[in-house]
Simulated scan of single mutants.
Amino acid sequence: MAETFVDLGFVTAPSGVLVLGMAGWVDYWRELGQPLSERAGAAAASGGGHLRDWLCEAVAVPAAGNGPLLVRARTSPSPFDEEPTIATLEVGLGVPWPETADRSVPVRLGDLPVDRCGMVVGDAVGLDAWTGMNDESADGLADLTYWGRYADDAHAQFGGERIAQYGCEGPHGWLDLPLDEAAARAAELTAWRDRLHGRGLMVSVDEHTDFYRFRRAGWHHPLHVGAIEVGGCRVLGVDWDQGDHSIRHRGERAAGQVYPVTLEADEADAAGGTVLRWTIPPYGFDDEDEDE
């Protein structure tokens, strides 16, 4: 399968600083003593750079704050299931390439692992408001889903719609329930399962945090990409197929599975703009032999 370019949508960066970072850790930056926006702003002021604190990682760069920034991807087939996966993620920054810099030489900012919980692209200040997987619902709502061996029996008893997702039927459940109602229905399902079967039915209540909302926004996209609003800014989230992640990116930074992030001249831009590019090399099965 040949590599192809895909338009993923756009983001906004009114602060003038764009971040590409690990979605599972966005909310932890502030817990480590300094907001993401302050760290990112300092890196962008020097032309861009890599940020790392404990398990949190991101890259921050200067970007135009007065309009949409296009995000694109080059795809290649996954060694896991041959479905298209992201090989290159590219963001048009809307700022000119420096006149004194060689347009043929990329500027390396560092490298990033592929977070199994996904990646985010968005405004540094907007992401300070990000609610993570352990935070409270942003709108007082939650989704309730259930699946497993006795899902059909549970559906006959309790109902619930089939929540379709790309490439699969998806679980049964209800979307956008008030938190109290979601908790009550989950308790009914769990009590029914324990009374009749003991096991064989999984029940999940997912509160509407930003972390959950970006994953939900990508349910129907072949690359698991979805856009949401965070802190008044449009943010793009990229989820990862867990099977593909386990083959191509397992172990993340601890296992040396990191990929270069660069600033490059945009050859497709007649005005001489700059792009942020994250490049994930094709997977080689020979790599496993070398590791053994």
Results as ranks from 00 to 15, higher is better:
Met1Ala: 14
Phe5Cys: 01
Phe5Arg: 13
Phe10Met: 02
Val11Trp: 08
Val19Phe: 09
Gly21His: 08
Gly21Trp: 09
Ala23Phe: 01
Trp25Gln: 13
Trp25Met: 09
Val26Lys: 02
Val26Gln: 14
Glu31Lys: 13
Gln34Trp: 03
Gln34Leu: 13
Leu36Lys: 11
Ser37Ala: 15
Glu38Pro: 00
Glu38Cys: 01
Gly41Leu: 09
Ala44Tyr: 04
Gly47Leu: 05
Arg52Trp: 05
Trp54Thr: 12
Leu55Lys: 05
Leu55Val: 15
Glu57Val: 09
Val59Lys: 13
Pro62Trp: 07
Leu69Ala: 13
Arg72Ile: 03
Ser78Thr: 14
Asp81Gln: 11
Glu82Met: 13
Glu82Leu: 15
Glu83Cys: 09
Ala87Val: 07
Val91Asp: 11
Val95Gln: 05
Trp97Arg: 11
Pro98Trp: 05
Thr100Phe: 05
Arg103Lys: 15
Val107Leu: 15
Cys117Trp: 04
Gly122Thr: 04
Thr131Leu: 06
Asp139Tyr: 01
Gly140Thr: 08
Thr145Ile: 12
Trp147His: 09
Gly148His: 04
Ala154Cys: 03
His155Phe: 07
Gly160Gln: 10
His172Ala: 08
Asp176Pro: 00
Glu181Gln: 13
Ala187Pro: 00
Ala191Val: 06
Arg193Thr: 14
Gly200Val: 07
Gly200Asn: 11
Phe211Asn: 10
Ala217Phe: 06
Glu229His: 10
Gly231Leu: 06
Arg234Glu: 12
Val235Cys: 12
Trp240Lys: 03
His245Cys: 02
Arg248Ala: 02
His249Arg: 08
Gly251Ile: 10
Ala254Leu: 08
Ala255Gly: 03
Ala255Ser: 14
Pro260Gly: 04
Thr262His: 08
Thr274Cys: 11
Leu276Lys: 04
Leu276Trp: 02
Ile280Met: 15
Tyr283Leu: 08
Tyr283Asn: 02
Asp287Cys: 01
